[in-house]
Amino acid sequence: MKKFKILSIILGGLFLFTSMSYKTDEGDKLIGVWEPSNKKAKIKIDKISGKYYGKIVWLREPIDPVTKKPKTDKNNPDESLKNVPLKGFRMLKDFVYKGDGEWADGTIYDPQNGSTYNCVIKLRDDNTLDIRGYIGLKTFGRTDVWKRLVMKKKK
């Protein structure tokens, strides 16, 4: 009887560990380089201290046509941060994996108007994301489709 109890505890622990690591691996499907539908930028999503963040790693037009210098976050509501380089800017912040291919509790920043929106990310398939930015209720928002950048296989 005692042996059976010990075996149950070990098996239970093993099951818990396996399911936890499975959930973590599932969440990591978000990691990679993604392209929004307007194709103006590429965003790399990585994981820092358990949460997911996305930074701009490529811009179609990296140089500001007025200043002739690399673009900066000129619409930032904080005056002192208007010269932060746009390349590298973290526009997705604080996403937590909720299971079932969904990441929530995060925000998305739009450098074109300097506004930050609540955001939920849904994995449509391994290489497609539905990014929904909203204010208040999810109903009042807009969804953009992002595609993962994948290396084309050589023939």
């Binding site: 820092i48 949460k51 963040y53 904080d78 932060v84 973290r90 912040k93 604080d94």
Partner: peptide, 8 residues
């Protein structure tokens, strides 16, 4: 908390 920019 949310990640914040401290400077550059």
């Amino acid at each position: 908390t949310s990640m914040k920019e401290c400077g550059f």
